[in-house]
Structure formats: structure tokens, C-alpha cells
Nucleic acid binder design. Structure first.
Lengths: 214, 214
DNA sequence: TAACCTACCAAACACTTGTTAGGGAAGGAG
DNA sequence: CTCCTTCCCTAACAAGTGTTTGGTAGGTTA
């Protein structure tokens, strides 16, 4: 469906997926360390320590450190686009689409906090590598979905027409995704509640409604 | 004045600053590479290549790779707080203070684009190191200034009272500073124009004013 | 019992990393 | 000319990097 459904290069397993439980465990801890320290600053030995095995043993499960990163990012993007495609195919109006996309985004941040953090820190220099070319495809598709929705909304009066639409796009996009840098699951607010307040701010602003106030 | 005025440890120069021209050149190119590739992913040899000399020669000017990073970040923060302190000491109302802070922030992004990008990517794991403890001080002061202004605004009706104020703080803060990731000096808009449109979005929202629209 | 597979360890490999030591060319000062 | 300072190069070092190789304990299958 999307062009992001890459099969992570895993030459070890020829059968479909016999026992990916351990892989997922290891990928989860790797993602946590990557998110906390940064990909390049993270050593394979550190991941192994955190997972309770030796560095070399990771290479029984994965081809390379880079393929771990690949699997983390592509796995996240696959799930993200599953959610986005459902929203975009629902035939909603511009404003409702934006609301649904923002809400869906915060749900993804809730479920893939580490992957989102990694994506934000590393994607900029990963796009240069051919292996991560699918990041470019995803970015393009992402921009098309959001920007297109915003333009539809400007056309039908849902959104203001007196702003640089690309500035608005980056504003909304960044506003949502940087939340992954401070969001912690199990915090004071649910993803839906955060989405609600963010949408309220983005759509209506933070200024007081009292005309008497300066 | 601020508590960020750290003297970068430069044991080589005992006199005040005899010829810091070359230093600034090298720091500028180092900052560009750090911002583009990430600090840990950047090798000293790469910086040297970009600057047109050999890796070892950098150590005539700087104590270490880390001290380059230190000097870049502390230099940026010093200038940032010079501007912020001027705004905060001007005795403006809450809304005018926020407007001035946002505008000042975009000016700093314009002048220290690379340093801001580095700060955003690396500060999270740098705060653990004692050498970069001043980052924590700056963060605390930053939060105090912004959050305090927002609270004053809620109290006097300038800002909405029906939102989680800490969420608003993070919203405004991130919204402004992530702009450094896409901003390029000499682009379509001046820092002031970007600040104006951002403020318009943050304060009044992006929704259309036409009540007839959904 | 024998063969086999899974998941790991122990130990090393080749390479890159930040950093250092010593030296030398260029130019101004005495 | 000699001395000194500035700025850079050459060449290496030790530590850390991702990765590979061979082996092995334990369970499952035949």
C-alpha cells in the first residue's frame, strides 16, 4: 500500500518469522539507547549490556548495528502510515482531517516514542544513504498529505488565507512531532488529551478571548 | 550578568585575545559540520578537511574536540541571554514580552543557526557532563522566564486560562526553536517576518475566522 | 543415543577515533 | 643575521569501534 513497506534485510532467517520475540525485545532496548544517547554515540557493547548479553551475540540476531536502526525506523514508519492512510481515506473535511492526523500522530508518539526521537535526530543525515532512501519517500508523502489538507482548508475557509502556507505546514508538523522529546507514556495526560489541547492551541491560539485585555 | 558567562578553557592563550580571527573561522566551520552530521558522528579529521588543514593542527587552536563544542554552545548562550535579558528588563506586559522573546529568538536563530541546531540535538545528553552544567542553568532560567511570562498573562487575561500552562510553555518553546532545523538565512522571509507569522499562529490560531466555515 | 538447532560466549580482527610530540617554514623584531 | 612567535605538517600512539570466527550448553527431534 505505502511505498515504505521495506523488508528489513535479514539474511539469517529464510523462513517467515519463526521466533521474532527476542528480536523485538532487543530492538526495543536498542531503540531506547539510541533515543537516549544518539545513534552514533551508542556502542554495540552498550546495547548488549543493557540487554544482558555480549556484543558479539547481537550479530546472531542482526546483520549490523545499522540494520537495527533500519528495522526500528521502517517498523515505525509502516505503522505510522497504516494509521495515516486510514485517516486520509476516510473522506473527512480539511479541519477534521487535520484533527485526526494530529490525534493519530500523538498516538504514534505514545506507542513509538523512542523511534520518533531517533527519527527526528538522525533522519536528516540518514537520507543521504541509499539504504534509508525510504525516509525521503515518506517525507514526500507526509508533506503531500499535510500540505494538501491545509490547502484544501484554505480554499474552503476552514483555515486562514493570510499566512505563508508552507510556514503553516512546518509549524503544525514540528509542533506535533517535537512533543516526542518530552513526552513520557503514563504521564499526566493521555495522547488524546494532549492532542486535544494542542489542536486547541494550533487552531484557536493561546491569546485570551477577552477583548478588554491588551 | 548571566550565569552562562563561562570562559572557554583555552590554556594556550595566556594573553587576553591576541588573534582570535582564525579561531572564529575554525569554530564556524566546526559548527556547520556538527550541525549537519551531529557531534559524535563528526570526526576531527572531517572538520580539518573542511577548514583546509590537517587534524592535528586543530590542536594548536583548541584543547580538544569537546572544547570546540563547549565554545560554540557557550558563545551562543551568552549572546542569547544578552538579548533575552534586554527584553525581560524592559518592563513590558505579558503579551508584548512573549512577542519580543519570540522575535528575539528568531533573530538568534538567524545569527546562530548552526549552534541552535547543535544545541537541540546534543543538549539532552550533554547536561549529564559536569563540563556542560551551564546548560542546566540556562534551561532553568529559560523556563522561568517563559513560564513566568505565560502565567502573568493568564492572570491578567492576555492568555487563555483553560489550558495546561506547562503544555503551553513547551508548545511555544518548541514551536520557535525547531525552526532552526529548516531555517536558512537569506530565504524568502526575514527573521522578523517569520516571527510575525509564527506569533500570529500561536496567538490567534490557524483556523479561519469565517463563522460559516465548518 | 545421535543428530540438530537455538542462543549465546570468548577472543580476536581490522579499522577509526581523538590526541600528542617534534619539527619546520614564514615573517617580524632586535 | 639571529631570535622568536605563529601556524601548520608528519607521524605516530592508545583506546575504542563494529564485526567475525569458532566453540558450546541446553533443549528438541528422530
Amino acid at each position: 500500500m505505502t511505498d515504505n513497506e521495506r523488508v528489513p534485510t535479514n539474511s539469517k532467517k529464510t523462513t517467515a518469522n519463526p521466533a521474532p520475540e527476542r528480536r523485538r525485545e532487543l530492538l526495543a532496548t536498542a531503540a531506547e539507547v539510541f533515543a537516549a544517547q544518539g545513534y552514533n554515540a551508542t556502542t554495540v557493547r552498550r546495547i548488549a549490556d543493557e540487554a544482558g548479553l555480549l556484543a558479539g551475540s547481537l550479530y546472531y540476531h542482526f546483520d549490523s548495528k545499522e540494520s537495527m536502526l533500519d528495522e526500528i525506523l521502517s517498523g515505525f514508519l509502516d505503522e505510522l502510515w497504516t494509521g495515516y492512510d486510514a485517516v486520509l481515506g476516510a473522506g473527512l473535511g480539511p479541519r477534521e482531517t487535520i484533527e485526526a492526523l494530529v490525534t493519530e500522530s500523538f498516538r504514534e508518539i505514545d506507542r513509538h516514542r523512542a523511534a520518533v526521537a531517533i527519527y527526528q535526530k538522525e533522519s536528516r543525515h540518514l537520507v543521504a544513504q541509499p539504504r534509508f532512501g525510504y525516509l525521503v519517500d515518506s517525507q514526500r508523502k507526509f508533506e503531500k498529505a499535510w500540505l494538501g489538507t491545509l490547502e484544501r482548508g484554505v480554499a474552503d475557509g476552514s483555515f486562514r488565507a493570510d499566512l505563508d502556507i508552507r510556514l503553516v505546514y512546518r509549524f503544525v508538523r514540528d509542533t506535533v512531532w517535537v512533543a516526542a522529546s518530552w513526552y513520557r507514556p503514563g504521564g499526566a495526560h493521555s495522547p488524546e488529551e494532549i492532542a486535544r489541547q494542542y489542536l486547541s492551541m494550533v487552531l484557536d491560539g493561546i491569546a485570551g478571548r477577552d477583548p478588554a485585555a491588551a
